[in-house]
Design a binder for these strands. Structure first.
Lengths: 187, 187
DNA sequence: GCTATCCTATGACGACCGTTATAGCCAGTG
DNA sequence: CACTGGCTATAACGGTCGTCATAGGATAGC
């Protein structure tokens, strides 16, 4: 269906150029659908389209995370960082996270912003739950999960600015060590 | 001078709405200067204006960081997080970091992007140097410095999305503990 | 007083934006 | 066959954007 192509194309454009630079016209053209169709599928306009793009991105990451976390928190975190490394490497550091892009551009897109908050919360919960399962206290697990996501998102932005993978690798190295130490201490 | 007001206004608008939603017209109006003056002061157009706004933000943070780091890395990091906490609280979670905003919106603003990369690098160097002075190995100090900046920037974005200060506090708590442990181990 | 220089003031340019309206195609159902 | 509803196709709306050009005013040095 072409509806999904529109959402996927919007997400791709948003993670590269941000929300405001992603025009509905270009999204439609890229998806091979007429402009009018966009407003047929998304009567809520750009806000709705952006919100769905954010939710799609959330699901993709959440699915990968859920799969890898079954092998343990360390594997999940490793997969999370590997995912961003691939995104950066595969786009010459030109793409980042569409969820973050929406949160940074405060225009009047309340649905999209809500979806963005929900995505961060969902990822955090997944990670925190996995940590708690492996003996980390609930409070500490939540803190660690937030740290993991915040630092990964921040590192991706730094990588884009500097056109280098090093910030992400630095952050991943530090957090992997911290995670191992924390889990080892509670086992 | 009105030139500085233009740059400061641009930085403020960028950190709230992002680069693309910051129009030169509005910046000029907000600064009380005519639109034509903007192109007199910044013949390089929006790219130059954005780059100078990023450099101004870099300097403000770097100055504060330099001052606080004289009392040690822990105090510097605490001040860094306190700064972002104030920005968020003082704007109802509607403002973030203009440096990050530029890096996220990949339009053709090469100078601004370069300034953004330079800002991240400058802050990292300051923090890493302070850590190294207090016994942390050079490699580790660089990694930790990157982690501190990445996680602070990422947490600020999460706070904006969720309209809550908790992500920043969670990250600050984790990193403060990590920092203390690291410095204690090498002393 | 004269002039050169910096800045103001104003308006225009082409382009793109989000959104809406309207008319037409083209299935599938009865 | 008729017809209805989902989607296409196309054009237009008011608005804002970055940028540029040009003319006016002020101010400082001579």
């Amino acid at each position: 269906m072409s509806r999904q192509q529109i959402v996927a194309g919007a997400a791709d454009m948003m993670r590269r150029r941000g929300l405001n630079a992603t025009s509905i016209r270009e999204v439609a053209k890229h998806a091979g659908t007429p402009l009018g169709s966009t407003y047929h599928y998304f009567p809520g306009g750009k806000d709705q389209l952006a919100a769905e793009a954010v939710r799609l991105s959330e699901e993709i990451v959440a699915t990968l995370l859920a799969e890898k976390l079954r092998q343990g928190p360390a594997e999940g975190v490793a997969a999370f960082f590997a995912l961003w490394r691939e995104v950066l490497a595969g786009t010459e550091f030109k793409a980042g996270c569409p969820v973050l892009a929406v949160a940074v551009e405060e225009a009047d897109h309340p649905e999209a912003l809500k979806a963005s908050a929900e995505a961060f919360r969902a990822w955090s919960k997944q990670l925190a739950a996995s940590l708690a399962e492996h003996g980390v206290g609930a409070r500490r697990a939540a803190q660690l999960a937030t740290l993991l996501i915040a630092s990964a998102e921040g590192a991706v932005v730094m990588c884009r600015a500097q056109r280098s993978i090093q910030p992400l690798d630095d952050v991943a190295a530090e957090l992997t060590a911290l995670l191992e130490a924390t889990i080892a201490a509670r086992t």
